[in-house]
Simulated scan of single mutants.
Amino acid sequence: MSVATLLIPDFALIVLGFLLARFANWGGHFWAGVEKIVYYLMFPALLFYTTSRTPFNFTTTGHFLQIAFIATACGMGLGYLAKFFFTSAPRVFESGVQTAFRFNSYIALALASRLAGDQGTALMALLIGFLVPLCNMAAVYALAHNSGKLLIEIAKNPLVVGTASGVIVNLCQIPVHEAINATLSRLGNASIALGLLAVGAGIRLSALHEAKAMASYFLTIKLLVLPLIALLLGHWMQLPLLQLQIVVIFCALPTASSAFVLAARMGGNAPFVAFLISASTVLSAITLPFWLSLVH
């Protein structure tokens, strides 16, 4: 499968979501509902379904997970350096730093599924399950250092719950009735298309009026530096081809759309984050093919 064949269908859905949100007059409440049902129901179902059915060998995926952790940690460290490199208005840095290391799970699983079916989806789900808690903790910490409910929020995260429960069922060899598996499969299949439409609907292409240098810095880290780290480490550790492809895709993903919700809910600079999410999503249409071409 060529890089263009791999990427075009998913980015076509993102563009379709953008166009529907602008011209269909369905209202913001409709798209908020789509985002909610995908995030809280359909996506966790997909994560559970794939992780509960795919055999895991943590001996062979150890380096794979290590590379993702190292690259993500580098994104956090480099992101926090922006506080010393740039001057900005209050809450701009605290709100924007999360975009240097958080990732869009919808695009992640869509690409992994098209690349390698259930095997690719399971590998990506493993990364999502392990790194969502770390990224969420770092993002919340930047906005509220003393949040007493941080660990509770992480434990209640639907992506963490879906992945963790699937891994437990898998490792403990707990049987799941085929009717339940079929239902979860239907929900999972629907989640990818709806999730990509929601990503497109959330794009805001308004001009950026503040912290342009900092925004460029965060975007460079997320779209260029992190995948480069993953690629170099993957070659050095001699990852199998599929694992190398998945970890590079993971590190090259645009930032999470939920970063806007977090910034808005915790009193941050939500418009700044909305721009970064939109810019990283649009620019990833250029950068993702580049990174995929290097490992395809």
Rank of each mutant, 00 (worst) to 15 (best):
L239K: 11
F86Q: 05
V132C: 07
A4W: 12
G62N: 11
L131Q: 09
S88E: 13
A263F: 08
G148P: 08
P289C: 11
S88L: 03
I286W: 10
T255N: 09
A68D: 06
V15H: 00
L242A: 06
A139L: 11
L151K: 09
M1T: 13
H63Y: 11
F84Y: 14
F86M: 04
A138L: 02
H29Q: 14
L46C: 06
L283G: 00
I286N: 01
L276D: 00
H29V: 12
L194N: 10
P133L: 05
G188W: 04
A32H: 13
L187A: 12
D118L: 10
E94Y: 05
A139G: 05
A264Q: 15
L19K: 01
Y80N: 12
A89L: 13
A12P: 05
P289R: 12
L294F: 09
T50H: 14
L126W: 01
A12I: 03
P133F: 03
V97Y: 07
H235D: 07
A12E: 03
M137K: 04
L151F: 15
G79M: 04
V199W: 01
V140E: 08
G17S: 03
C172V: 14
L232V: 15
L288Y: 06
Q245R: 15
A190W: 05
L233A: 14
E35M: 10
R265A: 14
A21P: 00
A274M: 13
G17T: 00
S206V: 08
A32G: 15
T54M: 13
H296T: 12
L194W: 10
I67R: 10
I168A: 15
A252G: 06
